[in-house]
Amino acid sequence: MRVLVVDDNSTNLDLMLYLLRAFGHDATGCADGATGLETALRGDFDAVLVDILMPTMDGYEFARRFRAAPALRALPLIAVTALAMPSDRERIASAGFDGYIAKPLEPRTFVAQIEGFARPAGP
């Protein structure tokens, strides 16, 4: 699977890229929303992971633009964020994401979760 990860925190970006690669996926990282969108549009990805609280373009704005782009509309978009209060979860659930993973993420199950969101169980 080719996965794009967008997170402004370099350590957390490092962790996600490391885990995805360790499980045999092709992972690309971006440190901000704008670069992330450009990369998503240029590349051929199977899933995109995005942090929510980021400077200049946050995850909500990212999701709006992402869904507005015809080429990206059907691509699985997953929020991976340390926003974990119930009100955050509700807002994220209604903001156009296909999945939500709270940080701290669970390293043993993280990649399987991403695979589940990216390839919803077929008929």
């Binding site: 962790l15 340390a82 701290p104 993420l105 390293p107």
Partner: peptide, 18 residues
């Protein structure tokens, strides 16, 4: 506070896990 505390814990729990 919740967000700021969880962010470094993500790295600690994550890399300990790997």
């Amino acid at each position: 506070m919740s967000h700021e505390l969880r962010t470094p814990l993500n790295a600690i729990i994550g890399f300990t896990g790997t």
